[in-house]
Design a protein around this nucleic acid. Structure first.
Lengths: 254, 254
DNA sequence: CGGAAAGTTGAGGGAGGTCAACATCGGTGG
DNA sequence: CCACCGATGTTGACCTCCCTCAACTTTCCG
């Protein structure tokens, strides 16, 4: 099921640029200062000189749907900033059971902890564009730029509280609560990146949602159907419209 | 069930020192340089001058079993380093369901993310001693000491991968796997702080384990009994002796 | 020694998993 | 343009793992 079609772009980079090409002219269209994710991303911590330093390191990467950016346990050679699209971050147990640790949306940073090896597999859910920073160079910039380190640290702290929220969800909530909570959380995230709407796009499949919430695909489907039947949501192609947010918030209960 | 006996030492600090006293003479017995948790803690990043700076900020706090150090949503006025004992870090849902996010052992750092408010409640499981650092002063030291910030950042990254491990456990493992994994994980942690042994102390109760693993107290008890019956472990007063570690590792499966 | 708290064990039930059939959707080629 | 096909999602029937409820035992302290 994890066929060779999902080869890692991280590997590809070492080879003569088959996918994920990172040629110099790729970063000629405006640069970091004009980057539309700058204000929502970790780059907001930087002065314009620092930004220039960052830009010198940046490369653009594009992924097709289902293409992997990197695999769990790959040596981490770079960090990334998502500028377009969405990715699934997952871990596999030896027997194939999967846990989706989260979804990276526009503005999200991958490789935050600067780990030796990636702790998750990152795969594109849609056509996705990223800013790539060579890890060594980025680490150098970080040590020279306490601002940036501070910002990364704050971000890591934030990730940690999100992880705690999700542990609460996985350990102590019912299936219906999990699904309601997931939809509200996703809506809030879209809101923060400027796409405030009652309609929540779901670029991930039902299986991805199930593996994220610690459920099966059937249970996710049933809960969505139930919420739809009860007029709390409306299932639409490619997403869900939240019809009764107070009710959903009651279910999410936090 | 969460009676007034569990009042927060964080509150107590503002009042005229009822519990958790932090008088100057409390830090006269050796200081940070002689601190036995120094090498396993975040302080290992510091030079001896920096250590002196840290020491000037430090206060000793002692907690009795069941006493709270701080509560979820308390304004975070300090960070802590555990020097003795153990604490339970938990979160409560409005309806009383509880998730234990983890247990802090000797050498562990509380308030790592320097949050505005604590995201968990911390309660002592045994007589516990901590080093307390006023948050403002600590934050000041951090900005003046890139070493330390770097170290905190690494630590936060490590916490993040631990959180991911635990999400995998909560979302995708069976009760037996959860318990086996928990025991092995605890043993590994004790090992890292110098208490390598086949016998794992369990300073927390069954309910705490259950709330950590997303199970009920009865299921935890049954799984321990089953592992005992199968000679994988031996239940002893106050803990568990791991009799067949390969078998436990097979169950934990990762 | 006595009472409360903590832990264990058993019986029964239910939320969610499993298995299987069916529906829907999107792409591809005739 | 539509028939076909595989992938994805939905629905139903049944089952099982874990939860619930309850009784009992053990441990911990005063």
């Amino acid at each position: 099921m994890h066929g060779s079609a999902e080869r890692s772009a991280e590997h590809a980079h070492a080879e003569p640029a088959p996918a994920g090409h990172a040629c110099a002219h790729d970063r000629s269209e405006g640069g970091c200062a004009a980057c539309k994710v700058r204000l929502v991303s970790v780059c907001a911590a930087l002065t314009s000189e620092e930004l220039a330093g960052l830009e010198a390191l940046s490369q653009h990467v594009h992924l097709d749907p289902r293409q992997a950016l990197f695999q769990q346990d790959d040596r981490a050679g770079a960090v990334y900033n998502v500028t377009e699209g969405a990715l699934r971050l997952s871990r596999l147990l030896p027997d194939g059971r999967r846990q989706v640790m989260g979804f990276a949306l526009v503005g999200d940073f991958l490789g935050l902890a600067l780990p030796e090896r990636f702790t998750v597999t990152a795969e594109a859910l849609a056509p996705t564009a990223l800013c790539r920073f060579e890890k060594g160079a980025f680490a150098g910039l970080v040590t020279r730029t306490p601002h940036l380190l501070q910002r990364l640290y704050e971000r890591a702290g934030h990730e940690l509280t999100l992880a705690q929220d999700h542990m609460m969800l996985l350990g102590r909530r019912t299936a219906e609560e999990k699904v309601a909570s997931f939809l509200l959380g996703l809506r809030a995230r879209y809101g923060r990146i400027g796409h405030e709407s009652i309609t929540v796009e779901l670029p991930m499949g039902r299986q991805d949602i199930a593996d994220h919430l610690g459920l099966t695909i059937e249970t996710v489907s049933r809960m969505l159907t139930r919420l739809d039947r009860e007029k709390a949501i409306l299932i639409v192609p490619g997403g869900v419209r939240l019809m009764d947010i107070p009710r959903l918030e009651g279910l999410a209960a936090n």
